[in-house]
Design a protein around this nucleic acid. Structure first.
Length: 415
RNA sequence: GCGACCAUAGCUCAGUUGGUUAGAGCGCCGGUUUGUGGUACCGGAGGUCGCGGGUUCGAGCCCCGUUGGUCGCCCCA
Protein backbone atom coordinates (compact mmCIF):
# COMPACT_ATOMS: atom_id res chain seq x y z
CA UNK A 1 0.00 0.00 0.00
CA UNK A 2 1.45 3.32 -1.06
CA UNK A 3 1.61 6.02 1.55
CA UNK A 4 2.70 8.68 -0.90
CA UNK A 5 0.72 11.68 0.28
CA UNK A 6 1.34 13.67 -2.87
CA UNK A 7 -0.61 11.03 -4.78
CA UNK A 8 -3.64 11.50 -2.57
CA UNK A 9 -6.75 12.18 -4.60
CA UNK A 10 -9.43 14.59 -3.42
CA UNK A 11 -12.20 12.76 -1.57
CA UNK A 12 -15.60 13.14 -3.18
CA UNK A 13 -18.33 14.47 -0.88
CA UNK A 14 -22.03 13.81 -0.85
CA UNK A 15 -24.07 16.47 -2.60
CA UNK A 16 -25.26 19.02 -0.09
CA UNK A 17 -28.60 18.14 1.47
CA UNK A 18 -28.47 14.48 0.46
CA UNK A 19 -28.19 11.67 2.97
CA UNK A 20 -26.73 8.20 3.16
CA UNK A 21 -28.71 5.87 5.38
CA UNK A 22 -27.48 2.77 7.13
CA UNK A 23 -28.81 0.57 9.87
CA UNK A 24 -31.26 2.03 12.32
CA UNK A 25 -32.48 4.97 10.29
CA UNK A 26 -32.66 2.96 7.06
CA UNK A 27 -34.76 0.37 8.92
CA UNK A 28 -37.12 3.03 10.20
CA UNK A 29 -37.39 4.49 6.72
CA UNK A 30 -38.29 1.07 5.29
CA UNK A 31 -40.76 0.52 8.12
CA UNK A 32 -42.60 3.73 7.19
CA UNK A 33 -42.78 2.70 3.53
CA UNK A 34 -43.90 -0.84 4.37
CA UNK A 35 -46.64 0.42 6.65
CA UNK A 36 -47.83 2.88 4.01
CA UNK A 37 -47.97 0.16 1.36
CA UNK A 38 -50.01 -2.04 3.67
CA UNK A 39 -52.46 0.65 4.73
CA UNK A 40 -53.02 2.09 1.24
CA UNK A 41 -54.21 -1.35 0.13
CA UNK A 42 -56.73 -1.35 2.96
CA UNK A 43 -58.22 1.78 1.43
CA UNK A 44 -58.16 0.54 -2.16
CA UNK A 45 -55.50 2.92 -3.47
CA UNK A 46 -53.73 1.64 -6.57
CA UNK A 47 -49.99 1.67 -6.73
CA UNK A 48 -48.76 4.19 -9.30
CA UNK A 49 -45.29 5.03 -10.58
CA UNK A 50 -44.49 8.30 -12.30
CA UNK A 51 -41.15 9.59 -13.64
CA UNK A 52 -38.59 11.35 -11.48
CA UNK A 53 -37.98 13.75 -14.37
CA UNK A 54 -40.63 15.75 -16.16
CA UNK A 55 -40.64 18.59 -18.67
CA UNK A 56 -40.05 21.76 -16.65
CA UNK A 57 -43.40 23.07 -17.86
CA UNK A 58 -45.25 20.47 -15.77
CA UNK A 59 -44.09 22.13 -12.57
CA UNK A 60 -43.67 25.66 -13.86
CA UNK A 61 -47.27 25.78 -15.03
CA UNK A 62 -48.70 24.12 -11.94
CA UNK A 63 -46.81 26.43 -9.61
CA UNK A 64 -47.19 29.66 -11.55
CA UNK A 65 -44.18 30.50 -13.67
CA UNK A 66 -42.79 33.39 -11.67
CA UNK A 67 -42.79 32.23 -8.08
CA UNK A 68 -39.57 31.85 -6.09
CA UNK A 69 -40.28 28.17 -5.95
CA UNK A 70 -40.04 27.80 -9.71
CA UNK A 71 -37.26 30.26 -10.34
CA UNK A 72 -34.94 29.31 -7.46
CA UNK A 73 -35.86 26.03 -5.86
CA UNK A 74 -36.16 23.50 -8.65
CA UNK A 75 -33.45 21.26 -10.04
CA UNK A 76 -33.80 22.10 -13.74
CA UNK A 77 -31.40 21.44 -16.59
CA UNK A 78 -31.37 21.19 -20.37
CA UNK A 79 -30.95 17.64 -21.63
CA UNK A 80 -28.87 16.76 -24.69
CA UNK A 81 -31.80 17.41 -26.95
CA UNK A 82 -32.15 20.92 -25.55
CA UNK A 83 -35.36 20.22 -23.65
CA UNK A 84 -35.71 21.74 -20.20
CA UNK A 85 -36.10 18.94 -17.67
CA UNK A 86 -36.84 19.20 -13.96
CA UNK A 87 -36.31 16.71 -11.15
CA UNK A 88 -39.72 16.41 -9.55
CA UNK A 89 -40.12 18.68 -6.51
CA UNK A 90 -43.52 17.14 -5.67
CA UNK A 91 -45.73 14.28 -6.80
CA UNK A 92 -49.03 15.94 -7.54
CA UNK A 93 -48.17 17.78 -10.74
CA UNK A 94 -46.55 14.69 -12.30
CA UNK A 95 -49.52 12.53 -11.38
CA UNK A 96 -51.88 15.13 -12.83
CA UNK A 97 -49.81 15.14 -16.00
CA UNK A 98 -49.95 11.33 -16.19
CA UNK A 99 -53.71 11.47 -15.68
CA UNK A 100 -54.05 13.72 -18.72
CA UNK A 101 -51.41 11.96 -20.85
CA UNK A 102 -52.86 8.51 -20.40
CA UNK A 103 -56.53 9.37 -20.49
CA UNK A 104 -57.09 8.09 -16.98
CA UNK A 105 -60.37 10.00 -16.92
CA UNK A 106 -61.81 6.63 -17.95
CA UNK A 107 -60.96 5.31 -14.47
CA UNK A 108 -62.32 8.29 -12.53
CA UNK A 109 -62.62 8.48 -9.65
CA UNK A 110 -59.08 7.14 -9.50
CA UNK A 111 -57.41 6.46 -6.16
CA UNK A 112 -53.62 6.20 -6.41
CA UNK A 113 -50.63 6.04 -4.07
CA UNK A 114 -46.89 6.25 -4.59
CA UNK A 115 -43.65 7.08 -2.82
CA UNK A 116 -40.12 7.99 -3.78
CA UNK A 117 -37.47 10.71 -3.96
CA UNK A 118 -38.17 14.38 -4.59
CA UNK A 119 -35.75 17.25 -5.13
CA UNK A 120 -35.79 20.83 -3.98
CA UNK A 121 -32.88 23.26 -3.98
CA UNK A 122 -33.31 24.60 -0.45
CA UNK A 123 -31.09 25.30 2.51
CA UNK A 124 -30.95 22.05 4.51
CA UNK A 125 -32.13 22.04 8.11
CA UNK A 126 -33.79 19.63 10.50
CA UNK A 127 -36.19 17.41 8.58
CA UNK A 128 -35.48 19.22 5.32
CA UNK A 129 -33.18 17.89 2.62
CA UNK A 130 -32.48 18.57 -1.04
CA UNK A 131 -33.20 14.99 -1.91
CA UNK A 132 -36.00 13.85 0.32
CA UNK A 133 -38.70 11.24 0.16
CA UNK A 134 -42.44 11.33 0.42
CA UNK A 135 -45.45 9.11 0.61
CA UNK A 136 -48.28 10.34 -1.58
CA UNK A 137 -51.97 9.56 -1.98
CA UNK A 138 -54.37 11.19 -4.42
CA UNK A 139 -57.97 10.85 -5.54
CA UNK A 140 -58.45 12.19 -9.07
CA UNK A 141 -61.80 12.90 -10.68
CA UNK A 142 -63.91 13.07 -7.56
CA UNK A 143 -65.67 16.19 -6.31
CA UNK A 144 -67.15 14.35 -3.35
CA UNK A 145 -66.29 15.47 0.18
CA UNK A 146 -66.23 11.78 1.01
CA UNK A 147 -62.97 11.57 -0.93
CA UNK A 148 -61.43 14.24 1.29
CA UNK A 149 -62.70 12.48 4.39
CA UNK A 150 -61.42 9.08 3.25
CA UNK A 151 -57.95 10.46 2.53
CA UNK A 152 -57.85 11.93 6.03
CA UNK A 153 -59.02 8.73 7.67
CA UNK A 154 -56.38 6.87 5.66
CA UNK A 155 -53.71 9.33 6.84
CA UNK A 156 -54.90 9.05 10.42
CA UNK A 157 -54.76 5.27 10.37
CA UNK A 158 -51.28 5.37 8.84
CA UNK A 159 -49.99 7.59 11.66
CA UNK A 160 -51.65 5.40 14.25
CA UNK A 161 -50.14 2.23 12.80
CA UNK A 162 -46.75 3.90 12.78
CA UNK A 163 -47.28 4.60 16.46
CA UNK A 164 -46.73 8.33 16.07
CA UNK A 165 -50.29 9.65 16.28
CA UNK A 166 -49.56 10.72 19.87
CA UNK A 167 -48.39 14.33 19.77
CA UNK A 168 -49.52 14.77 16.17
CA UNK A 169 -52.60 16.89 15.54
CA UNK A 170 -54.78 17.06 12.46
CA UNK A 171 -55.41 20.73 11.69
CA UNK A 172 -58.07 21.49 9.15
CA UNK A 173 -59.39 24.45 7.24
CA UNK A 174 -61.48 25.22 4.19
CA UNK A 175 -60.48 27.65 1.47
CA UNK A 176 -63.97 27.51 0.03
CA UNK A 177 -64.84 27.44 -3.63
CA UNK A 178 -63.47 29.99 -6.08
CA UNK A 179 -66.11 32.61 -5.20
CA UNK A 180 -65.61 32.22 -1.43
CA UNK A 181 -61.88 32.33 -1.77
CA UNK A 182 -61.81 35.47 -3.90
CA UNK A 183 -64.13 37.32 -1.52
CA UNK A 184 -62.09 36.28 1.52
CA UNK A 185 -58.85 37.24 -0.13
CA UNK A 186 -60.16 40.71 -0.97
CA UNK A 187 -61.29 41.19 2.63
CA UNK A 188 -57.89 40.07 3.94
CA UNK A 189 -56.02 42.46 1.68
CA UNK A 190 -58.27 45.26 2.87
CA UNK A 191 -57.63 44.33 6.51
CA UNK A 192 -53.87 44.14 6.09
CA UNK A 193 -53.73 47.35 4.08
CA UNK A 194 -55.44 49.08 6.98
CA UNK A 195 -52.65 47.85 9.30
CA UNK A 196 -49.80 48.34 6.85
CA UNK A 197 -47.74 50.31 9.35
CA UNK A 198 -47.81 47.55 11.97
CA UNK A 199 -46.77 44.68 9.74
CA UNK A 200 -43.26 43.23 9.66
CA UNK A 201 -41.04 43.81 6.68
CA UNK A 202 -41.53 40.23 5.52
CA UNK A 203 -45.28 40.56 5.67
CA UNK A 204 -45.26 43.80 3.72
CA UNK A 205 -43.62 41.84 0.91
CA UNK A 206 -46.22 39.09 1.36
CA UNK A 207 -48.98 41.63 1.04
CA UNK A 208 -48.05 42.11 -2.60
CA UNK A 209 -47.00 38.58 -3.48
CA UNK A 210 -49.04 36.23 -1.32
CA UNK A 211 -51.29 37.99 1.22
CA UNK A 212 -52.81 34.76 2.59
CA UNK A 213 -49.38 33.85 3.95
CA UNK A 214 -49.49 36.71 6.44
CA UNK A 215 -52.05 34.63 8.32
CA UNK A 216 -49.49 32.01 9.36
CA UNK A 217 -46.58 34.41 9.89
CA UNK A 218 -44.26 33.46 12.76
CA UNK A 219 -43.27 37.03 13.46
CA UNK A 220 -44.76 38.12 16.83
CA UNK A 221 -45.19 41.61 15.40
CA UNK A 222 -47.65 40.22 12.83
CA UNK A 223 -49.64 38.00 15.16
CA UNK A 224 -52.14 40.56 16.50
CA UNK A 225 -53.00 41.71 12.98
CA UNK A 226 -53.14 38.16 11.61
CA UNK A 227 -55.24 36.98 14.54
CA UNK A 228 -57.72 39.82 14.14
CA UNK A 229 -58.06 39.21 10.39
CA UNK A 230 -61.44 37.89 9.23
CA UNK A 231 -61.95 34.13 8.96
CA UNK A 232 -63.20 32.69 5.72
CA UNK A 233 -66.44 31.56 7.35
CA UNK A 234 -68.28 34.79 6.67
CA UNK A 235 -67.45 34.52 2.98
CA UNK A 236 -68.28 30.88 2.38
CA UNK A 237 -71.04 30.15 -0.09
CA UNK A 238 -73.74 27.73 1.03
CA UNK A 239 -72.22 25.02 -1.18
CA UNK A 240 -68.76 25.55 0.26
CA UNK A 241 -70.15 25.44 3.77
CA UNK A 242 -71.96 22.18 3.04
CA UNK A 243 -68.83 20.70 1.54
CA UNK A 244 -66.76 21.45 4.62
CA UNK A 245 -69.55 20.16 6.85
CA UNK A 246 -69.61 16.88 4.96
CA UNK A 247 -65.84 16.47 5.35
CA UNK A 248 -65.87 17.09 9.08
CA UNK A 249 -68.87 14.85 9.74
CA UNK A 250 -67.08 12.14 7.76
CA UNK A 251 -64.13 12.53 10.10
CA UNK A 252 -66.33 12.46 13.17
CA UNK A 253 -68.05 9.31 11.94
CA UNK A 254 -64.68 7.60 11.54
CA UNK A 255 -63.58 8.84 14.96
CA UNK A 256 -60.73 10.94 13.63
CA UNK A 257 -59.77 13.81 15.92
CA UNK A 258 -59.27 17.18 14.24
CA UNK A 259 -58.90 20.84 15.06
CA UNK A 260 -60.02 23.80 13.03
CA UNK A 261 -57.16 26.10 12.10
CA UNK A 262 -58.66 29.12 10.40
CA UNK A 263 -55.11 30.38 9.70
CA UNK A 264 -54.10 27.37 7.59
CA UNK A 265 -53.80 28.48 3.96
CA UNK A 266 -52.36 27.52 0.58
CA UNK A 267 -50.63 30.00 -1.66
CA UNK A 268 -51.75 28.81 -5.05
CA UNK A 269 -55.07 29.62 -6.63
CA UNK A 270 -56.04 26.13 -7.74
CA UNK A 271 -56.46 24.96 -4.15
CA UNK A 272 -60.12 24.79 -3.14
CA UNK A 273 -62.09 23.66 -0.13
CA UNK A 274 -60.22 21.34 2.19
CA UNK A 275 -56.68 22.15 3.36
CA UNK A 276 -55.08 20.13 6.13
CA UNK A 277 -51.85 19.43 7.93
CA UNK A 278 -50.90 16.91 10.56
CA UNK A 279 -48.50 18.87 12.75
CA UNK A 280 -46.18 18.15 15.67
CA UNK A 281 -43.86 20.17 17.86
CA UNK A 282 -41.33 17.36 18.00
CA UNK A 283 -39.47 18.27 14.80
CA UNK A 284 -38.30 21.81 15.48
CA UNK A 285 -39.29 24.30 12.84
CA UNK A 286 -40.48 21.65 10.41
CA UNK A 287 -43.73 20.88 12.15
CA UNK A 288 -45.74 19.45 9.28
CA UNK A 289 -45.64 15.69 9.10
CA UNK A 290 -48.33 15.18 6.48
CA UNK A 291 -50.20 17.77 4.46
CA UNK A 292 -52.51 18.22 1.54
CA UNK A 293 -55.80 19.42 0.27
CA UNK A 294 -58.17 19.72 -2.61
CA UNK A 295 -56.81 21.08 -5.89
CA UNK A 296 -59.77 21.15 -8.23
CA UNK A 297 -58.13 23.70 -10.52
CA UNK A 298 -54.79 22.00 -11.15
CA UNK A 299 -55.50 19.60 -13.97
CA UNK A 300 -57.22 22.33 -15.92
CA UNK A 301 -54.22 24.59 -15.33
CA UNK A 302 -52.10 21.89 -16.99
CA UNK A 303 -54.34 21.95 -20.06
CA UNK A 304 -56.52 18.99 -19.13
CA UNK A 305 -60.27 18.81 -18.69
CA UNK A 306 -61.74 20.40 -15.54
CA UNK A 307 -61.12 17.71 -12.95
CA UNK A 308 -61.75 17.74 -9.24
CA UNK A 309 -59.00 16.14 -7.19
CA UNK A 310 -57.63 15.91 -3.68
CA UNK A 311 -54.50 14.42 -2.14
CA UNK A 312 -51.80 14.49 0.48
CA UNK A 313 -48.10 13.87 0.88
CA UNK A 314 -45.94 13.05 3.89
CA UNK A 315 -42.19 13.29 4.40
CA UNK A 316 -40.77 9.82 4.99
CA UNK A 317 -37.69 11.15 6.82
CA UNK A 318 -39.87 13.16 9.18
CA UNK A 319 -42.11 10.20 9.88
CA UNK A 320 -39.08 7.97 10.38
CA UNK A 321 -37.65 10.42 12.92
CA UNK A 322 -40.85 10.14 14.95
CA UNK A 323 -41.04 6.34 14.93
CA UNK A 324 -40.08 5.02 18.36
CA UNK A 325 -36.87 3.02 18.73
CA UNK A 326 -38.54 -0.11 19.98
CA UNK A 327 -40.92 -0.36 17.04
CA UNK A 328 -38.24 -1.60 14.70
CA UNK A 329 -37.10 -5.15 15.31
CA UNK A 330 -34.26 -5.88 12.94
CA UNK A 331 -32.89 -8.75 15.01
CA UNK A 332 -31.74 -11.84 13.21
CA UNK A 333 -33.18 -15.21 14.11
CA UNK A 334 -29.79 -16.87 14.47
CA UNK A 335 -26.18 -15.97 14.76
CA UNK A 336 -23.61 -18.76 14.54
CA UNK A 337 -20.20 -18.50 16.20
CA UNK A 338 -17.59 -20.83 14.69
CA UNK A 339 -15.15 -21.38 17.53
CA UNK A 340 -13.00 -23.85 15.65
CA UNK A 341 -12.16 -23.58 11.95
CA UNK A 342 -12.29 -27.38 11.74
CA UNK A 343 -16.06 -27.07 12.19
CA UNK A 344 -16.46 -24.44 9.50
CA UNK A 345 -18.03 -26.82 7.02
CA UNK A 346 -20.71 -27.94 9.50
CA UNK A 347 -21.36 -24.33 10.40
CA UNK A 348 -21.75 -23.30 6.77
CA UNK A 349 -24.15 -26.18 6.16
CA UNK A 350 -26.18 -25.20 9.18
CA UNK A 351 -26.22 -21.59 8.06
CA UNK A 352 -27.46 -22.53 4.58
CA UNK A 353 -30.11 -24.88 5.98
CA UNK A 354 -31.44 -22.23 8.37
CA UNK A 355 -31.59 -19.60 5.65
CA UNK A 356 -33.34 -22.05 3.30
CA UNK A 357 -35.93 -22.61 5.97
CA UNK A 358 -36.59 -18.91 6.12
CA UNK A 359 -34.60 -17.90 9.19
CA UNK A 360 -32.56 -14.72 9.06
CA UNK A 361 -29.08 -15.91 9.99
CA UNK A 362 -25.52 -14.67 10.17
CA UNK A 363 -22.19 -16.32 10.86
CA UNK A 364 -19.10 -15.19 12.74
CA UNK A 365 -16.07 -17.09 11.46
CA UNK A 366 -13.26 -14.55 11.28
CA UNK A 367 -10.78 -13.12 13.72
CA UNK A 368 -9.50 -14.81 16.83
CA UNK A 369 -11.54 -18.03 17.36
CA UNK A 370 -11.67 -17.43 21.09
CA UNK A 371 -13.32 -14.07 20.62
CA UNK A 372 -15.92 -15.16 18.11
CA UNK A 373 -18.47 -16.07 20.76
CA UNK A 374 -18.27 -12.60 22.25
CA UNK A 375 -18.48 -11.05 18.82
CA UNK A 376 -21.52 -13.15 17.94
CA UNK A 377 -23.18 -12.34 21.25
CA UNK A 378 -23.07 -8.65 20.35
CA UNK A 379 -24.99 -9.16 17.12
CA UNK A 380 -28.73 -8.71 17.79
CA UNK A 381 -30.32 -12.13 17.31
CA UNK A 382 -32.97 -14.26 18.94
CA UNK A 383 -30.71 -17.25 19.31
CA UNK A 384 -26.98 -17.96 19.31
CA UNK A 385 -25.39 -21.18 18.10
CA UNK A 386 -21.78 -21.89 19.07
CA UNK A 387 -20.03 -24.59 17.05
CA UNK A 388 -16.54 -25.73 18.03
CA UNK A 389 -14.31 -28.41 19.48
CA UNK A 390 -13.15 -28.90 23.05
CA UNK A 391 -10.77 -31.58 24.26
CA UNK A 392 -11.01 -33.19 20.82
CA UNK A 393 -14.79 -33.45 21.02
CA UNK A 394 -17.01 -31.35 18.76
CA UNK A 395 -19.90 -29.52 20.34
CA UNK A 396 -22.89 -27.40 19.37
CA UNK A 397 -24.16 -25.09 22.07
CA UNK A 398 -27.31 -23.05 21.82
CA UNK A 399 -28.90 -20.31 23.83
CA UNK A 400 -31.72 -17.85 23.38
CA UNK A 401 -35.30 -18.29 22.24
CA UNK A 402 -36.22 -21.88 23.12
CA UNK A 403 -38.47 -22.46 20.13
CA UNK A 404 -35.71 -21.39 17.82
CA UNK A 405 -33.08 -23.52 19.49
CA UNK A 406 -35.33 -26.53 18.98
CA UNK A 407 -35.59 -25.65 15.30
CA UNK A 408 -31.82 -25.29 15.06
CA UNK A 409 -31.32 -28.59 16.81
CA UNK A 410 -33.60 -30.36 14.32
CA UNK A 411 -31.92 -28.61 11.41
CA UNK A 412 -28.45 -29.68 12.46
CA UNK A 413 -29.56 -33.24 13.15
CA UNK A 414 -31.07 -33.46 9.66
CA UNK A 415 -27.74 -32.59 8.03
C1' G B 1 -30.95 34.45 -0.17
C1' C B 2 -29.94 35.86 5.52
C1' G B 3 -28.14 34.63 10.63
C1' A B 4 -25.98 31.76 14.77
C1' C B 5 -23.06 27.76 16.32
C1' C B 6 -19.76 23.84 14.90
C1' A B 7 -15.51 20.84 12.13
C1' U B 8 -9.30 16.94 16.25
C1' A B 9 -8.39 8.77 15.17
C1' G B 10 -13.50 4.58 11.87
C1' C B 11 -17.34 6.70 15.87
C1' U B 12 -18.27 10.00 20.36
C1' C B 13 -15.28 13.62 22.31
C1' A B 14 -11.08 16.03 25.64
C1' G B 15 -7.00 19.18 24.50
C1' U B 16 -5.67 24.91 30.06
C1' U B 17 -3.56 32.32 28.92
C1' G B 18 -0.64 30.09 21.81
C1' G B 19 4.73 26.40 24.03
C1' U B 20 8.31 19.45 23.88
C1' U B 21 6.59 13.71 20.41
C1' A B 22 -1.85 15.77 19.99
C1' G B 23 -4.95 12.19 24.13
C1' A B 24 -9.31 9.14 26.18
C1' G B 25 -13.53 5.92 25.65
C1' C B 26 -15.83 2.84 22.15
C1' G B 27 -14.84 0.04 17.71
C1' C B 28 -11.07 -2.85 14.88
C1' C B 29 -6.63 -6.48 14.93
C1' G B 30 -3.44 -9.76 18.02
C1' G B 31 -2.26 -12.10 22.82
C1' U B 32 -3.54 -13.71 27.84
C1' U B 33 -7.65 -14.80 31.31
C1' U B 34 -12.63 -17.03 31.85
C1' G B 35 -14.97 -21.89 29.85
C1' U B 36 -22.42 -23.13 28.69
C1' G B 37 -18.78 -18.28 28.31
C1' G B 38 -21.55 -11.08 26.33
C1' U B 39 -15.69 -11.01 31.75
C1' A B 40 -11.04 -8.78 32.83
C1' C B 41 -6.04 -7.48 31.52
C1' C B 42 -1.85 -6.52 27.99
C1' G B 43 -0.30 -4.97 23.25
C1' G B 44 -1.05 -3.04 18.12
C1' A B 45 -2.80 -0.49 13.83
C1' G B 46 -5.15 4.09 12.86
C1' G B 47 -4.32 11.76 12.84
C1' U B 48 -0.21 16.45 7.71
C1' C B 49 -6.29 18.71 13.97
C1' G B 50 -12.03 19.96 7.05
C1' C B 51 -9.29 22.85 3.19
C1' G B 52 -6.38 27.49 1.73
C1' G B 53 -4.05 31.81 3.28
C1' G B 54 -2.28 35.14 7.35
C1' U B 55 -0.23 36.76 12.36
C1' U B 56 3.86 34.72 15.49
C1' C B 57 10.32 32.59 17.39
C1' G B 58 6.27 28.99 17.76
C1' A B 59 -0.82 27.76 15.80
C1' G B 60 -5.31 22.14 17.03
C1' C B 61 -5.95 26.99 19.81
C1' C B 62 -5.71 33.85 17.24
C1' C B 63 -7.36 36.46 12.24
C1' C B 64 -9.36 36.18 7.04
C1' G B 65 -11.34 33.20 3.24
C1' U B 66 -13.50 28.65 1.65
C1' U B 67 -16.12 23.87 1.92
C1' G B 68 -19.22 20.97 4.77
C1' G B 69 -22.49 20.03 9.09
C1' U B 70 -26.27 21.58 12.69
C1' C B 71 -30.19 24.80 14.04
C1' G B 72 -33.22 29.01 12.95
C1' C B 73 -35.22 32.92 9.34
C1' C B 74 -37.10 33.32 4.29
C1' C B 75 -39.74 29.85 1.32
C1' C B 76 -42.81 25.79 1.65
C1' A B 77 -45.39 23.10 -4.33
Amino acid sequence: MSKDKSAKIPTPQAVRGTQDMLGDFADRFAHVVDTFERVRRLYGYKRIEVPVIEPTAVFARSLGETTDVVSKEMYSFDDRGGESITLRPEFTAGIARAYITNGWQQFAPLKVATHGPLFRYERPQKGRYRQFHQLDAEVLGSDSPLADAELLVFADQLLKELGIAEGVTLTLNTLGDAASRDAWRAALVEHFEAHRGELSEDSLARLDKNPLRILDSKDPQDRPIADSAPDIDAFLTAEAQDFFGAVTSGLDAADVAWERNARLVRGLDYYRHTAFEFVTDRLGAQGTVLGGGRYDGLIEALGGPPTAAVGWAAGIERLAMLVADDVIDCRLDFVIAVEDDGQLKLAMKTLAALRNRGFASEIVASGSPRKRFDKAAKIPARALIAIGTRDGVSYTNMRGDSELTIVADQTIRAL
